[in-house]
Design a protein around this nucleic acid. Sequence first.
RNA 1: GGCCCUAUCGUCUAUCGGUUAGGACACAUCCUUCUCAAGGAUGGAAGCAGGGUUCGAUUCCCUGUAGGGUCACCA
Length: 498
Amino acid sequence: MSENTNTQIVTRFAPSPTGYLHVGGLRTALYAYLMAKKSGGRFLLRIEDTDQARTVEGGIENITHSLAWAGIIPDEGIKLDENGAIMETGHNGPYIQSERLNLYKKYAEELIEKGHAYYCFCTPERLEEVKTQRQADKLPPGYDGLCKTLSKEEVDVKLQASEKHVIRLSIPEVGASVFEDQIRGSVSFQYSDVDDQVLLKSDGFPTYHLAVVVDDHHMEVTHVIRGEEWISSTPKHLYLYECFGWEKPLFAHLPLLLNSDRSKLSKRQGDVAVMDYKDKGYLPEALLNFVAFLGWNPGDERELFTLKELVEEFSLEKVNKSGAVFNLEKLDWYNHEYLKKLSKEEFESYVDNFMPAIAKESDNYKEVLPRLLGTLIERIEKGTDITDTYEENISYFFTKPNIQDENTLVWKSLKDDADGLPKSKSYIAEVREILSNLEDDKWSDKEAIKDVVWPLTDKYGRGEVLWPLRVSLSGREKSPDPFELCFILGKEEVLRRI
RNA sequence: GGCCCUAUCGUCUAUCGGUUAGGACACAUCCUUCUCAAGGAUGGAAGCAGGGUUCGAUUCCCUGUAGGGUCACCA
């Protein structure tokens, strides 16, 4: 459990380019980044595209852009240049596994020579049979080791005949693999429970298990930080380090991110792609802060952290062991907090981004938008709140509302009064008179508007005057206060509506 | 099913044997010169169960239970 803070830590994030960056991946990348940065070491991005079938066009771009959006910039490996194009830096490349095939082949063969691996010629069909048979016999699943017994001569004959084959790791029959997980403490597995994993596939590509070990070693990775789903294959990796005689890195398996039903966070139950959150108007600072706190906290009661502050405060010792539910409501709260930190200009362009076309087509859009910001910041938590509630809460700022039932203008205290409606109308007629005499330059000051209207509320009652005023301006029973409305709409529009 | 991991309010979590078990989100109530929002105040809300160890366990150990992960020529 000892972390030597004097030495530089090298970490990596090694996603496979299957389409998009998962929020769980973002957190893994973040923790790895924080560890490296805190020690003054390096964080590198490597692409694990060893499954030809699953590799998706544009996958690398999506991952690097998502990471860059979040502010996690690799020191080494795959990253973006100034123009946003994919580039590679570092002296241990290439950093895309499909470009390192010869290396994996060489090491797989080295393992065979040393007797730690063997050729396997079993067909998928036979493997399937073995699997069902072992299940029926209630044996632990896994390869039965048939090809392990092949003599060198038999192997040579098959190789000569170009029989399709893979290379399998030869796991010891007895013994155990014990390691000190940086988060969980001591973890151990019996070798008898570990399968003879395929290392090199018949298409010449390595599996994850071979590639990750070879690359982490050559790329000088000191801390392997990855999701908990990898914990049960760690013995295979550790054993490979031993076979090669390489120094082992430290391992840290992060708890999983969960759906609200506590299953592994999945696409089915909501958004999982980082870009989905970007598109919904979540700020990178908010997503990062939120995700950082899923499984980690500084130990005190602070909750708002910038990336830089996280670098200073983060430590693996404080990472939790149990999975964390990805709770959107908390994320929304974070987002609102960060929205409030935006400058007026930034917030304006943010809002503009989510305004529907119909709003932008309005004549007064450019004029009204800046004045709308003050009320909007209190009412939205994310960009999609604008689009989702536009009709009800925002549209009336740009288009004059239709008041279908004039009785909605009557404040509740006058509802039973037969003259309620005429009275209400007369009150706001008076307000209109007063407002029409208010100098133009006073309209930029909400308080000044209030000052001239206020005496009337003393005279006729608060709700009696303010309610109909507000309803006539907004056409809604719920809205910001009437003075705010006046300020936002502007003199001309206000007089038109009352 | 085998193996592995995990277990404090609904959710994220603090507590490194002794606390009125703290905070945040969410929720409820109240205040905040008309409504709503924001803000403020207050409140409800938790140690999975059973055994140990100990003067004392949420905390350490064991068992059970529950949840999750993993058992591919996918990562």
